[in-house]
């Protein structure tokens, strides 16, 4: 009786959203930002795009790039790690004690440096998962102060200098014109990329950030993954410390002060979401590069350090705002 209103069945076509110019722009916004920034600085300063300066940027960016890739993991799980700057300091101070004050082997020193970083990360993870502190902002704020305090106490606030070549190697050496620290960054980022996109734990990190409860009910051991996340973040702080010691040939207890903020900035500028579940390794690399290029360029242009801080503040806000705009456009009921 109503056959005339029974219209055609909905077509079952493959609906693939067309990749418009706009969608590319939003996807590659951080990269576009970096390219624009580089272009502008090339015009403003003839010293900017020289081999020497580019390698300089690569070297300068490496510490923050390593901290940032560690920081990406907690942020992907909708968390944060405020303690990385302090962990960096305590790791290198302990390394200084082991390899210089105690005169033990530099290899052991390096291992101890990394182990101390990882150990503090483990503490962060346990505070979050076993003591069930409500948010890693709180637990890592605590360990941030504890680690810094320990770094000051164990050496009575005195710096340690004169590290052996092996320890300085990562931060100081070059392969041809390329700083070893930058090669290290590239290697670390490749490993992280594979880890996050191609391993079970890596995928679980995204799952937990996207929906912790759904992840748990899908049989994911959320606590275990979170502990791994913070251990890796701490480990990267130790590694960044190693690079730093090589660069300045000394370890001092106030090293890495407020470095966590640049690391967070790099992750966020690189397009990761504070709500978790969204963010990429390459975005973080570009975020770290943008900060380094900006600092370097402003230096070349003789902009005072105070102004540089303000500029970086603006960039953080602008980068996140671009993301907000993109999300608003993309949302649908």
């Amino acid at each position: 009786m109503m056959s005339e209103v029974v219209i055609q069945k909905p077509k079952n076509e493959e609906t693939k959203p067309k990749k418009t110019v706009k969608s590319y722009v939003s996807k590659f916004a951080p990269l576009i930002g970096l390219v624009l920034l580089t272009t502008i600085l090339t015009f403003l300063s003839d010293k900017f795009l020289t081999m020497n300066n580019v390698m300089n940027i690569a070297r300068q960016s490496s510490i923050n790039a390593i901290l940032a890739i560690g920081m990406l993991l907690p942020i992907l799980t909708a968390g944060i790690d405020l303690s990385v700057g302090s962990i960096l300091a305590v790791s290198i101070m302990v390394m200084g004690i082991v390899s210089i004050n105690m005169g033990l082997s530099p290899i052991l020193g390096i291992l101890v440096c990394l182990a101390v970083g990882a150990a503090f990360g483990l503490i962060n993870g346990l505070l979050l998962t076993k003591l069930r502190l409500p948010h890693p902002f709180i637990s890592t704020l605590g360990t941030m102060n504890i680690a810094r305090g320990i770094a000051l106490i164990i050496t009575a606030a005195a710096p340690i200098a004169g590290f052996p070549y092996l320890i300085q190697f990562l931060g100081r050496e070059f392969v041809g014109p390329i700083p070893v620290s930058f090669l290290l960054v590239i290697a670390v980022y490749i490993i992280f990329h594979i880890f996050l996109t191609r391993t079970q734990t890596g995928r679980y990190i995204y799952a937990i950030g996207g929906n912790k409860e759904a992840a748990r009910l899908s049989g994911i051991n959320v606590d275990r993954v979170l502990i791994i996340v913070y251990v890796i973040s701490g480990l990267m702080a130790g590694l960044a410390g190693l690079v730093m010691v090589g660069r300045v040939n000394s370890a001092f207890p106030l090293a890495g002060l407020s470095y966590e903020l640049d690391a967070i900035a790099a992750v966020i500028i690189g397009g990761a979401s504070f709500m978790g579940g969204v963010g990429t390794v390459w975005g973080t690399l570009i975020g770290a590069m943008i900060i380094a290029v900006l600092r370097n360029g402003l230096n070349l242009l003789n902009v005072p350090a105070d102004f540089q801080m303000a500029v970086i503040g603006f960039v953080i806000i602008a980068a996140v705002y671009v993301d907000v705009l993109r999300q608003r456009k993309g949302k649908k009921g």
């Binding site: 995928r203 995204y206 799952a207 996207g210 929906n211 409860e213 759904a214 992840a215 009910l217 979401s273 579940g277 969204v278």
Partner: peptide
């Protein structure tokens, strides 16, 4: 709230 990762593709 308990089933999906809203910001991940269907295959994941």
């Amino acid at each position: 709230s308990e089933g999906l990762l809203l910001d991940q593709p269907l295959d994941f």
